[in-house]
Each structure stands twice: as C-alpha cells, then as structure tokens.
Design a protein around this nucleic acid. Structure first.
Lengths: 152, 152
DNA sequence: GCACCTATTGATAATAATTCTCATTATCAA
DNA sequence: TTGATAATGAGAATTATTATCAATAGGTGC
C-alpha cells in the first residue's frame, strides 16, 4: 500500500477528512530526501498554494507523526526537522561546523532496544538516536586552529 | 579528580571565575539522581539563595555542557532536562503515560558509533539515544481500553 | 587589605518555535 | 444538495531559552 493510500485509510478510519492541504504537505514530504523543518515545508507547499498557513503545516505534521508516517528529529538544533518513515530504521549524525547530516544504519541499536523490551516489558513507540560532532573536513580545520577554549 | 575540582580547573584555565551561584548549581546537580529541568534546578538553588536568577541557571548549564560535565536530554518533552555526565554512558526510555524514566546501558550503541567514526572519519561530540513509549503498567491499561483512534 | 579590571549576575525584554482561538470554509455521508 | 462538523487561515498566546545592560563581585597586583 502506498503511503498516500495509508494516509487516506488512517484518515477515514478515524472520522477525519482528506483535504487539499494535507495532500500537498504529504507530497512535499515524499518528494524530498532532506530533513525539512516546518518553515521549509511551508515554503514548498506555498509555492503550490499560497493560501496555506503555517499552523496547518504543524497540524498535519502532528497528524502524520501520530499515524507513524513521519518522524521528527532535532538534528542538534532547537527546532524540529521532519522526514517520511523509511522501511529500514536509520539514524543521524549532524556536523556542528557545516550542519551537514550523515545518515547511517545500525542494526545493533534495535537489538539493544529489543533487549530492553524483553527485560522491562515496555512498549517502544519511538527510537531516536542522534549524534553531533564534526565531520572529517571540519575536524581537520579545527585541529589546525588549536582550539582549547570552552565556547559557550 | 572530583567534578568540583574539574569544574574549577576548567574555569580557571579559561579565564573565568568561580562564583557562589555556579558552586550551588553544581551542588544541586550532583545531589540529584533525577533529570531536572532548568526550572526545577532554579527552585532547588533558590532554596539556598533566593536571589539567584533563572538566567544564571541557564548560563551555568550551558557552561557545564560545553565543558562536558553535564548532558541535556529531551525525554520526549519540549524542554530540556539535565544530568551530570556518568562514567558509563546510559540512555533513557520515557513513558508517555506516566512520564517515568527508565535508564539503561547498551554497549552496542557505542560500538555502532565507533563503526561510524571508523567509516566516516567524523569526531563524535555527543551521543543521544532516547526511547519513548509505554511502560509495562501503562501498556496494560491501554490494552484494556482498546484504543485505536489516532490522538493528535 | 585595597583598588582595579572585567567576568558575572539579576531583572526583564526579546526571540523562536509551536500551539491555541475562533470565525469562516470545505469535506463527505445521507 | 444539504447539513453536520472537521479543517483552515490569521494572528494571538504560550513556552523555553537567549540577549541586554546597569550593578555587583571575583581575583590579581600592589
């Protein structure tokens, strides 16, 4: 089942309605391989329909998250970034220097999560692994600068 | 070296000054095994010196984070929670129902991080693994309620 | 101990991200 | 086509955090 069909099914089975706005926001998310924030999604959606408000973007993202179709990441920033949920779970490394994001897979993570489930009997709804640091380029730059001071 | 001594050394080697406020905030953090947010830390510090402002708490937390003595977690909420860095890395599961936090260790996580370092040549400054879901109690409650609706 | 330089503080204004409010519009079942 | 009500847009409100700035207080040299 396509994600659009999944969305439609989830919407109808909850007594909700499919709207042009929800349709467009889903399309923007599906078309992008990046990790857009709400503002960026709003910009792209507005390009197709200038009347859509930012609040609707937030509302739809909350809905998609609740349905498990979208994940939110912090990526070392103070505001959220969003992406469609993939089949294989993956995680993010964000460079503090150049803000680039490196995605990576690591089956060991879900194994560790499973052992927590086995031990504690919890039900895990969301797994969030996020690394920050310096990519190899920014790492070299910093090394030559001999930074020792604490930067607050 | 005690954490207090570490803090003092880091402060002096950066041309900064040790103050009563910084001292108190560090003591509050060390005395607590919980994951306090800035407001809670402020409350506890005020009990010992009512003049201390919230801004100073945030400034000191930022300083301690930059020095690697304190870690900030989101714990599924929209504001930060803080704790002293421990020798052995550990992670957090937060129950959406009762807000309880379960801490757990998982050496597999740092192994996965190491393999990313080896592969990409990145320098990792911070690792953040956070799970949300329902603890065994809340899980059972939900099961008997037969919830199917999407809650936004 | 005293004075000086300037890091730090407290109080509060400002900012940023997100959520809420409410009158208006639009979906969709009958 | 109509009616009930879900959803929207615009902007106000909220929340967490950061910035501003005059007053205060570490800590170094005398």
């Amino acid at each position: 089942m396509s994600r659009e069909a999944q969305f439609l099914t989830a919407i109808h089975s909850n007594g909700l309605r499919m709207t042009r706005q929800r349709q467009l926001i889903l399309e923007v998310l599906e078309a992008s391989q990046e990790h857009l924030d709400a503002e960026a999604i709003h910009d792209r959606v507005k390009a197709r329909d200038p009347r859509i408000g930012l609040a609707t973007v937030y509302r739809t993202l909350a809905l998609l998250k609740a349905m498990g179709l979208v994940k939110e990441h912090s990526l070392g920033e103070e505001h959220g970034h969003f992406e469609m949920v993939q089949k294989v779970p993956h995680y993010h490394f964000t460079c503090i220097g150049c803000r680039q994001v490196i995605e990576f897979e690591a089956s060991a993570v879900m194994e560790a999560v499973q052992s927590l489930i086995d031990r504690e009997g919890v039900q895990v709804m969301d797994v969030h692994l996020s690394l920050t640091g310096y990519c190899s380029n920014c790492r070299e730059e910093r090394a030559t600068n001999h930074e020792v001071k604490v930067e607050v």
